[in-house]
Design a protein around this nucleic acid. Structure first.
Lengths: 226, 226
DNA sequence: AAAATATGTGACGAAAACGTCACATATTGA
DNA sequence: TCAATATGTGACGTTTTCGTCACATATTTT
């Protein structure tokens, strides 16, 4: 279960917020001043901190600063609670590493939503799904293509076609198979569509275009890099 | 053992062909009309289909079309059986994705030979790199998208955007993150570009578009299917 | 209820993607 | 060397994609 630490000196607000988080399935802890808050952060390392900026003992900025400096806390996300007027303060807070803020008065619902968003964002570590060959890299999640670490935008068909060829580098692919894979059918009829796409690809690839070899009578091949 | 499905309404021919394949070490199944044939294709996913074009219930073209659109069948090779005269029909069949044809009357020996050739060619199946979520499937190599096994063509941006959301299903992604991922920047300026793309996506997805939820004040989320 | 804010949508024009054709060029085999 | 065959390429028109705007609708706040 994910844990939330609420650092808020106004007891009513703390209770209200705490209640709402509990109702949404979070483990809630409350600290009523800055000193206590910081102690609990470092000791319990909650998954998220809701931090009022105006606090007795140690104010919110000081907490943010300390959190930043300490490895036990510097990656814990923080949502600030601020009064409506404190615009500069919010900016200062964001600079100090807070992830979000919400102005008083606020709706508990919105706070929960933001909290969820932040918690989940911090949880995702999407697996990179890349395919690399020589100077080429395909990011299959981003649908992005790189050549020597530089982005190069390929059209959908170009991406498909070149990925197909690169994944089978060293093997020549015959025209029918290419047509079938990329277009879903093989017309058998010889239009120059495939050639045109190869031409465009080679042009986009610049000097690396020479990786694409023509296998006369068969189709194309991407040369296996050394 | 490799399995062959023969879809042929003339019982004698079906038996003859079936016998010959069995003698050559294949697992044979027979369907006597189109409806039955299609059902068996989808259920059993044979390694090869021998398909008579003239069939009761559902004709051969319809079967080819449906096979193409359905992920469970679109890569299963097909050899058509056609009458000598039906030249146009053969072309039509090849366009629809059939791999080969043979004209009646034919020698079982020739049919077996062609079948062997096709099966051999199809044996190399590169590893599919798929991401699935509920009714959705992304083929990251083919850059193809499927909804309930049916292909649906998405534009590059739509593919990127929806894959991103689906891979983080259940978590709301805020507008900035989406902009940043899909467009590489987040201008902060509120144009309606993102919304427009979401609208188009929802429309293309049809009734499954309801999987995309709007999180007001945050961004969007793809609902976690049960 | 009215105002303020956020999201949804149809329409439009610009740009990119795409397929095809005619013709150029290259390769092969006789 | 000369056909025959295969691939390369520029140009063109069509279709799709894309971003933006104005305005509609929905939700929240005052």
């Amino acid at each position: 279960m994910e844990s939330i630490l609420i650092i808020e000196d106004e007891v009513d607000i703390a209770k209200l917020v705490g209640f709402n988080f509990e109702r949404n399935g979070y483990l809630v802890d409350i600290a009523h001043d800055g000193r206590e808050g910081l102690k609990k952060i470092l000791e319990n390392q909650p998954d998220l901190v809701i931090l009022d900026l105006m606090l007795p003992e140690i104010d919110g900025y000081k907490i943010l600063k300390k959190m930043q400096r300490d490895t036990r806390s510097h990656s814990i996300p923080v949502i600030m609670l601020t009064a409506k007027s404190q615009i500069d303060d919010r900016l200062k807070g964001l600079e100090l590493g807070a992830d979000d803020y919400i102005t008083k008065p606020f709706s508990p619902k919105e706070l929960i939503l933001r909290a969820k968003a932040i918690l989940k964002r911090n949880r995702v570590t999407p697996v990179a799904e890349d395919f690399s060959l020589g100077p080429f890299r395909f990011d299959k999640n981003a649908l992005a293509f790189f050549i020597n670490h530089e982005a190069l935008s390929l059209s959908l068909i170009e991406f498909r076609l070149f990925l197909f060829l690169c994944q089978r580098a060293g093997q020549s692919q015959d025209r029918n198979d290419l047509l079938k894979f990329v277009w879903g059918y093989s017309d058998e009829i010889h239009s120059r569509t495939l050639d045109t796409h190869m031409k465009r690809l080679r042009k986009k690839l610049g000097k690396e275009g020479s990786f694409i070899e023509t296998i006369r009578g068969i189709g194309y091949r991407v040369r296996q890099p050394e």
